[in-house]
Design a protein around this nucleic acid. Structure first.
Lengths: 238, 238
DNA sequence: GTCCGGAACTGTACAGTGTAAAGTCGCGGT
DNA sequence: ACCGCGACTTTACACTGTACAGTTCCGGAC
């Protein structure tokens, strides 16, 4: 596969030794193509030309590996630019998170709940909070904004995650299949939305993301304005 | 444990026969107290006084059971009242979903991605869409609103799910533990938010939920208004 | 050259998982 | 008395994470 220049003469020769990095990269690769449940120690070892137990020299346990690949995903997310307008920065960052989650769907339930956050994770959080604070949000307001934005981003990813269709043509048959065993007129509004909207050509559920994102950013902008005014008598924000 | 009145004389006597309902209820109970990963066929059977394979007479496979308990959770959610103001209905429904997810944390990753939605699931979706439509949302706008609200609700539950603390006193030590291995001044904004806000007495992360919810409802109300005005020349909404 | 120590990995084992396939038991109907 | 069948059990298989002990190999000390 890779360049094996170090090979000299001996039989099987020393193979490339393991390393945290090498393990984590093929772990991500494995999870990307088969989902997180297809990432087993034995398959991972097999992919690396090594027995399953070999990884336990470099990692405490499987969770240690999961922590590692999650932080690698965090490192793929663009940090909000330091001097940028908070709104543009938050918008771009949200889209960057979503893109990363689209590349690594398996990460969706894992990113938010690590007990051992890695450095990329912490750096990400710090940069987002910093961007909000620089944009005039006080601490409480920044916490509100962060909670709201992250809930939406991860929630959208979660609800989108394994929609059983990718192309908009598939939507129709899937929707049929889901409603199949039930009488047609029992769920009129749901049927209407599916037939008159979702199954419409050109519909892409992914487009909903930016719509909702802008609604939230509008709301945050107005809330920030209210805070700033309320505070303007005591001290300027930042 | 329970009343065993049907016992008459014989040795072990015919036990209460299994049934979908009985299996699903103890399955929920098991998942509630030990998380979804502690719901195994053998433990479930043991709890029911039965071998693991006995359940396969009543269910196709484990996923069939998961489908069942997820729909039971849906049935616990209050449907939006038919004639109510859309905003009040959506607010109350969001809180009801969140409460159900707090009672059944294991359900969070499962509710949104069922390939075989049960009747309670479909009824829920239908009622929510119906409430929005009755409130003057056109189909596209109702879809936007639904996507936004559900993403937020499930996302908030997801990010809250396994915060490693319940009481606000625990927050401090956990935060310390997370930042422990890192230099203090590397993440100034994050540290500031933790020390000056999160670790403040009386702080409850759960309170963020309704704040963000109201920001979203405000945004939806304004967006709905814009649509209604744009449409007022052609036909009245609904 | 011989020996040692430890790094890096392998082998074996165990308790756990979902479930396919076949076997068993007892009751209701004829 | 017997059959059929519903309801459940037994056994088995392939898979999981990982504890623990054993092996192999390399660099340095003497």
């Amino acid at each position: 596969m890779t360049t094996e220049t170090t090979e000299t003469t001996k039989v099987a020769q020393r193979r490339v030794p393991l390393s945290r990095e090498r393990v984590l990269h093929t772990a991500i690769q494995l999870a990307d193509q088969g989902g997180i449940e297809s990432l087993s120690m034995r398959k991972l070892g097999q992919e690396l030309g090594v027995e399953a137990m070999a990884m336990y020299y470099h990692f405490a346990n499987k969770d240690d590996i999961i922590d590692g690949i999650v932080d690698l995903v965090f490192s793929e997310i663009d940090l909000p630019a330091a001097g940028a307008d908070w709104r543009a920065a938050m918008r771009q960052r949200a889209i960057s998170v979503r893109d990363a989650l689209l590349r690594h769907r398996w990460a969706i339930g894992l990113m938010e709940s690590r007990r051992n956050p890695g450095p990329a994770n912490l750096r990400h959080h710090d940069a987002v909070i910093g961007s909000l604070r620089a944009g005039g949000f006080d601490i409480a307001m920044a916490a509100h904004a962060y909670s709201l934005l992250d809930s939406y981003i991860y929630g959208f990813a979660l609800t989108t995650m394994n929609l059983p269709f990718d192309t908009s043509e598939e939507v129709a048959e899937v929707a049929q299949g889901m409603l199949g065993p039930f009488p047609m007129n029992e769920y009129p509004h749901l049927v209407e939305m599916l037939t008159d909207h979702v199954m419409t050509p050109g519909y892409d559920f992914g487009d909903e993301f930016e719509y909702g994102l802008d609604v939230i950013l509008d709301g945050l902008e107005r809330a920030r304005g209210r805070t700033a005014i309320r505070r303007s008598g005591t001290h300027r924000a930042r």
